[in-house]
């Protein structure tokens, strides 16, 4: 993607993506809107500015890799992949349907652009580490990006991976933590406390940045800074809001894994359109 950053254009894209995400989840009748909306600004920044990738050649050996470790947010990823041209956007309307290329959780055997299948939490991160290790050992220039959930960070394997990636000095690996503060049944800090989460990653030897995960300029700057870090992996702790962009979804635990009704969808789209005009 081009070097000139048009932050406003990226923000506009993300706004449109929010609408499509909610529409396809409602069409599917199930899915995870909250965690999709918290992650969409990060995904937009990665795919429409930061990462080196070629949708016409998804198996280009030196492409940057992206792994959605919090696999349940895949509606957001699918919308972005479709917009990039990895597959025809018409498939979005088959999300979660029988025979669809778009499964309820990412399936690398069905969806172009999906590097590794995920769905069980804590796993994609380790696979991303394997990809980064291969790149390091082969001396390839590609980078690997892994988007983690904060609830997911309660899985022990995340911390196994954190040790491993630091031990091997995987400077080609950037993790982004979608720190929306909620998990399926409540606030992360009320289920199993994660804070001070940035300090934990620092203690594991990672380069850590803390940003507002909905500030497009901040996301781009943090990704750029991470790319320049040598000798160790990096994590961007992105403070986000689950359901960001729609007032009645924001911060509401109940929208972790529930589609909006048609009436709710209408209100949500109107809000997002209003935000666009304002």
């Amino acid at each position: 993607m081009g070097p000139a950053v048009d932050v406003h254009a990226l923000e506009a894209r993300a706004r449109e993506f929010r609408k499509t995400i909610l529409q396809v989840i409602t069409k599917a009748g199930s899915g995870h809107p909250g965690g999709s909306l918290s992650a969409i600004d990060i995904l937009t920044a990665l795919y429409f500015h930061h990462m080196r990738h070629d949708p016409r050649n998804p198996s280009w050996s030196d492409r940057d890799r992206f792994v959605l470790s919090k696999g349940h947010a895949c509606p957001a990823w699918y919308v972005v992949l479709a917009a990039c041209g990895y597959f025809d956007p018409k498939h979005l309307w088959t999300l979660r349907e029988i025979d669809s290329i778009l499964q309820g959780h990412p399936d690398m055997t069905r969806t172009p652009g999906v590097e590794i299948s995920t769905g069980s939490l804590g796993m994609g991160f380790s696979a991303a580490i394997g990809m980064a290790l291969a790149g390091q050992r082969d001396g390839r220039p590609y980078r690997v990006y892994a988007l983690l959930g904060d609830g997911e960070s309660q899985e022990g394997s995340i911390w196994e991976g954190a040790l491993f990636a630091h031990h091997y000095g995987l400077e080609n690996l950037t993790a982004i933590l979608d720190r929306n503060g909620l998990q399926q049944t409540g606030r992360t800090e009320e289920r199993i406390r994660l804070d001070p989460v940035a300090d934990k990653w620092r203690a594991f030897g990672w380069h850590v940045q803390e940003i507002d995960g909905h500030d497009m300029g901040a996301i781009l700057a943090a990704l750029e800074q991470a790319r320049g870090v040598g000798g160790r992996p990096q994590i961007i702790v992105a403070r986000t809001v689950k359901g960001k962009g729609v007032s009645f979804i924001e911060g509401v635990v109940g929208f972790h894994g529930k589609a909006l009704t048609q009436a709710e969808l209408g209100r949500a789209l109107a809000e997002l359109d209003g935000a666009q005009k304002g």
Partner: peptide, 23 residues
């Protein structure tokens, strides 16, 4: 250069293997 010590962390080891396999 092709040996990977994964430490006592079998869950991560499988993920690393999967990442190597897709590479």
């Amino acid at each position: 250069d092709r040996f990977v010590e994964c430490g006592i962390a079998e869950q991560n080891m499988i993920g690393v293997a999967a990442g190597l396999a897709v590479s």
